[in-house]
Amino acid sequence: MNGVHDLGGSDGHGPINPEPNEPVFHAEWEKRVFGMFLPVAACGYFNLDEFRHAIERMGAPSYLNTSYYEHWLHAFETLLVEKGALSAAELAARQQQIAEEAR
């Protein structure tokens, strides 16, 4: 399917800039998102192709301006709400609660 993820051959994305001695993860939250994938997938709410598709339908600005593990986070939130494992309201409420506790 066509979409922003189909990047092969497009231009204007700038230099590659490989990072010397790059760590496997760049932040603690990236580890949490990565480590969640298999356990959440094992719950049966989505398969790998649905997960990839959830990233592909992010929309170009979000896709290009957020990092790889933010794509994964978006896919988790999208699919788990769509499949009824979580509600958008409880997710928003928990985010607000955590933000307030962290102040």
Binding site: W29, E77, L80, E90, R94, Q95, I98, A99, A102
Partner: peptide
């Protein structure tokens, strides 16, 4: 915040 919220609910 989003990661902590998701993880804690799961």
């Amino acid at each position: 915040i989003r990661v902590k919220a998701l993880e804690s609910l799961l």
